[in-house]
């Protein structure tokens, strides 16, 4: 079953086509890698899929309630509420909020009380906050950050900030999760932990995951299928082994001889 597909997706910045004519098909519960040299347009593609940029041309369709729904050009918050979550390449946590509150912000759309209930502290406020508190703690357990729940997000070490971003994305209750370079800046041990974490959340939360990554060992290790971008164009797709031996991919990374 196709969960997400794009057709001829293009995004121009002035005269530059950062993403051009990209057509993808992502199936349910797949773990797909998106790779390519620096500046290939990977993050731009993520930004298109999550609504940060509007497509110049082409369509994006997401499976919503059993039907493919066009989401191209919708606002990011609408797309998130349709079930797409993401993390950022250059970590965008809410730095001055605690670890726990970061998660609670992710759960915001899932909290059911009105402004008046919040202001006058009706019982519903306390019961909902209690539920949110417990669910947020459960998510922190997944990424092993319960001990740090009261720390400010900015005070976490780099690797843990990355994990917190993943937990925060999970808090929005996504069906499709985009991870933008989750292993950037991690040492091999942390990368191994991350690999396990990605596999675990995919199964536990019944997710379809698409990840951008430069760490090839991680990509080849966890991804079932890989798309390769170069200069905004899709140059190859397939399972890890075929990508490893693909001539175009080798050329894109190493140049022609």
């Amino acid at each position: 079953m196709i969960v997400l597909q794009t057709k001829n997706l293009t995004r121009n910045f002035g005269g530059l086509a950062a993403v051009s004519n990209v057509s993808l098909e992502i199936k349910k519960n797949e773990l797909v890698g998106l790779i390519g040299p620096n500046g290939a347009g990977k993050t731009t593609l993520f930004n298109l899929l999550t609504g940060v940029y509007e497509p110049s041309e082409g369509t994006i369709e997401l499976l919503v309630d059993g039907n493919l729904k066009s989401i191209g050009g919708l606002k990011p918050y609408t797309i998130t509420n349709f079930g797409i979550g993401r993390t950022f390449q250059n970590i965008r946590l809410f730095k001055e909020l605690t670890v726990l509150d970061n998660i609670k912000v992710g759960m915001n759309q899932n909290i059911n009380y009105g402004v008046l209930t919040a202001i006058f502290r009706f019982p519903k406020y306390y019961s909902e906050e209690k539920r949110v508190h417990e669910e947020a703690l459960k998510l922190l357990e997944v990424v092993n950050l319960v001990d740090k729940k009261d720390e400010l997000a900015k005070n976490l070490p780099y690797g843990e900030q990355r994990k917190l971003e993943i937990a925060r994305a999970l808090a929005t209750n996504p069906r499709v999760l985009f991870l933008d370079e989750p292993a950037a800046g991690m040492n091999p041990i942390e990368t191994q932990e991350l690999t396990d974490l990605i596999r675990k959340i995919k199964d536990d939360f019944n997710l379809t995951i698409i990840l951008i990554e430069h760490d090839m060992s991680l990509v080849m290790n966890v991804c079932e299928r890989i798309y390769v971008l170069d200069y905004g164009k899709l140059i190859a797709s397939g399972d890890p082994d075929s990508i490893k031996n693909n001539k175009k991919v080798i050329e894109a990374y190493l140049g022609e001889d």
């Binding site: 999550t50 998130t80 993401r86 946590l93 809410f94 929005t172």
Partner: peptide, 10 residues
């Protein structure tokens, strides 16, 4: 704190 991240949180 971060408008883009906030939008992405729905």
């Amino acid at each position: 704190e971060d408008e883009i991240a906030s939008e992405t949180m729905g």
